[in-house]
Amino acid sequence: MQSPDPVTLAEFRALCAALPAPDAGAVAAARARDAVLTKPPGALGRLEEITRWLAAWQGRAVPEAGRVQITVFAGNHGVTARGISAFPAEVTVQMVENFRQGGAAINQLARTFGAELEVIALDLDRPTRDFCSAPAMEEAELVAALQAGWQSVRPGTDLYIAGEMGIGNTTSAAALSAALFGHDGGIAGWCGRGTGLDDAGLRRKEAAVALALALHDGHLADPFEALCRLGGREVAAMTGAVLHARLLRVPVLLDGFIACAAAAVLERAQPGALDHCMAAHQSAEGAHGRLLQAIGKEPLLSLGLRLGEGSGAGVALGLIRAALACHSGMATFAEAGVSGA
């Protein structure tokens, strides 16, 4: 059932406490079908896990992927003024145009695996504030970004993927992850090279994250407040999208470090909030593996990707289609005239 659009941050928080559960009956029916297909039990490994996960949230013994949404959110970050990225902020605008012209990696993956791609640019001419000196967003700005993500998820979607584009957003994701899960082992454990920082750039990134955490210390216990102070518009939009997908019972394939940091806000707000999500891959960004462990997700792939855009999830969409093809298309032992175990 479609929920009314939340209009305040309090409403977004409240929704985290009223999340639907998976459909146990659909999982049992999917498992029963799997048991009579012409293969040994468990022979398709994680492909069988994928099918049961989709069944749980679609409520169907034979899940489908006829309507797959990929939404790429774009935002700019004020913290880039501190030299924490290998690329200038104007690249965000240029890449949005590239998406719209069909020239990016995610365009090719969406086309290859039959997904609908949408690009949503969020106030690119108005970067968030430098979170080393002020909260990245005012509450109204955070709510607007959450709403943009929320509204992107369409009822009846079989699978949703959120991607991002935003120069500086690995710094935002690092600060947000450290705020959500702690940094007793040091800030460096959450900071990677992003788009290709040299050693000096990495030191600037670590210094920026440390400064931001010190500035906002005492205000980060609430996950949504941490998102407001350390996130970005595209990060918050992904948070809103993942939350609405859960309310609509739409399964979500999580992309890389930034997408997982956005989703982690919900997991910290309500344990189990990401049960409808599966991690597509572990990226080359060093902290992504640490973050996946923190949110309890085992990635499907590990290919050394570090592009963003939803590209890792786009590649994993091929695995989703493989799992569904086997589950729906294989003959049963009775149909094939094969003796079962």
Rank of each mutant, 00 (worst) to 15 (best):
V91K: 13
T92Q: 12
T92R: 15
T92E: 11
V93W: 11
V93Y: 10
Q94F: 08
M95I: 13
M95G: 02
V96E: 10
V96F: 14
V96K: 14
E97M: 10
F99Y: 14
R100N: 13
R100Y: 00
G102T: 08
G103L: 15
G103N: 11
A104C: 12
A104R: 07
A104D: 09
A105T: 11
A105D: 11
A105F: 04
I106C: 06
I106R: 06
N107E: 01
Q108M: 12
L109R: 07
A110W: 07
A110F: 03
T112G: 00
F113Y: 15
F113E: 06
F113T: 13
A115Y: 05
E116V: 09
E116M: 04
E116D: 09
E116F: 05
V119Y: 00
V119Q: 03
I120V: 15
I120R: 15
I120A: 09
A121P: 02
L122W: 09
D123N: 13
D123Q: 14
L124N: 08
L124Q: 07
L124C: 12
D125G: 15
R126I: 08
R126L: 12
P127E: 04
P127G: 10
R129M: 03
R129L: 11
D130S: 13
F131K: 12
A134W: 09
P135C: 06
E138P: 03
E139Q: 15
A140V: 04
E141P: 00
V143T: 05
V143F: 08
A144M: 12
A144C: 08
A145N: 01
A145V: 01
L146S: 13
Q147F: 02
G149Q: 14
V153T: 04
T157E: 06
L159Q: 10
G163T: 14
M165G: 04
N169S: 13
T170M: 07
T170R: 11
T170A: 09
S172Y: 02
S172A: 15
A173C: 06
A174R: 01
A175P: 01
A175N: 08
L176S: 01
L176H: 04
S177L: 08
A178E: 06
L180F: 00
G182E: 04
D184G: 15
D184F: 09
G185F: 07
I187E: 03
G189C: 10
W190L: 03
G192P: 06
R193I: 05
G194A: 00
G194Y: 05
G194F: 02
T195K: 11
G196V: 02
G196A: 03
D198E: 10
D199S: 02
A200F: 10
G201E: 02
G201C: 04
R203M: 09
R203A: 02
R204A: 03
R204I: 03
K205N: 01
E206S: 01
E206Y: 05
A210K: 08
L211Q: 15
